[in-house]
Design a protein around this nucleic acid. Structure first.
Lengths: 149, 149
DNA sequence: CCGTTCTCTACCGGATCGCTCAGGAACGAC
DNA sequence: GTCGTTCCTGAGCGATCCGGTAGAGAACGG
């Protein structure tokens, strides 16, 4: 899985929403773009994708903008990334034990390893919610202890 | 990090070399391509990259071909992937705490998380050597116990 | 009705990817 | 020495994606 700038930008935008959640109302794309220093037109289509995935809700007209659709603790980084960057995998190979991929010297072992790596990645991104990130950003919470291999 | 077909193909080719290592001499690209069912011209340039990285050695002329440059236990998947697909990272963002990336609402936290993910990935691929994969492929060795999050 | 703000669609230049092709250069055999 | 085998080099090509722009339209509030 390669995390593109779309994924990064999406997380930045949502983090900004989470940080200002106490302000209540919707936040316009322009405000988000200013706070995050991201290109506004590009950010628009990213937010559109996030809306399509049900992560944010939108309101049009004066005073409109975007709001988180769920509480920050229920929005995981994996949700965000897969919403804008597609499914979290390390590459699109076939499944092991399919399509004769194993006909050649047991190389399906490699497919299995790639899938493991993808799963690893998903689990890692599943370990962070918007809530936990805001806590870390505000210094209210230390970095979680990470497993060392 | 996205694992491209180049990385996959490189591992397949080297796995094939490792599986036939007892035969001694070099193996021609044509033979490798046949055994792995990979497109030969494409495989050639991949092997070239692997040679540049010092993972294989080559010999020209009749009876020539490619040989592993080190013992299979000393060749890690991470070596192979980074040789043909470039450094193992999840995306090329700046380092945290640089270039004013932290000027906007502590978003360098995200950069740190992406870097963690990349490190995670590297460690995972560093856990498999050509030797261990051949063992698994031959059924001589079980799958290693993986850490569950 | 008018301005604000989201929504949609199209487009674009550049990069990358997977792969092919056409030689060229080293090597061994004879 | 020349011939076939094999690696080596480099160009090129179609397709896809990526980051970003542009512009018109539609909902909403006042």
């Amino acid at each position: 899985m390669r995390i593109s700038t779309r994924g990064d930008y999406a997380c930045r935008a949502l983090l900004s929403l989470a940080l200002h959640i106490e302000e209540g109302g919707p936040t316009s794309v322009r405000d988000i773009a200013e706070r995050t220093a991201l290109p506004q037109p590009y950010l628009e289509q990213i937010l559109l994708a996030l809306k399509g995935a049900g992560i944010v809700r939108s309101k049009r007209g004066v005073g409109g903008g975007y709001v988180l659709a769920r509480e920050p603790a229920a929005i995981m980084l994996s949700d965000i990334i897969s919403a804008v960057d597609g499914p979290i995998t390390v590459g699109d190979f076939g499944e092991p034990h399919q399509d004769g991929a194993c006909d050649h010297e047991g190389q399906c072992v490699l497919l299995e390893i790639w899938n493991q790596a993808g799963a690893h990645m998903r689990e890692h991104l599943d370990g962070y919610s918007l809530a936990s990130i805001t806590s870390i950003a505000n210094g209210e919470s230390p970095w979680p202890v990470l497993h060392e291999h």
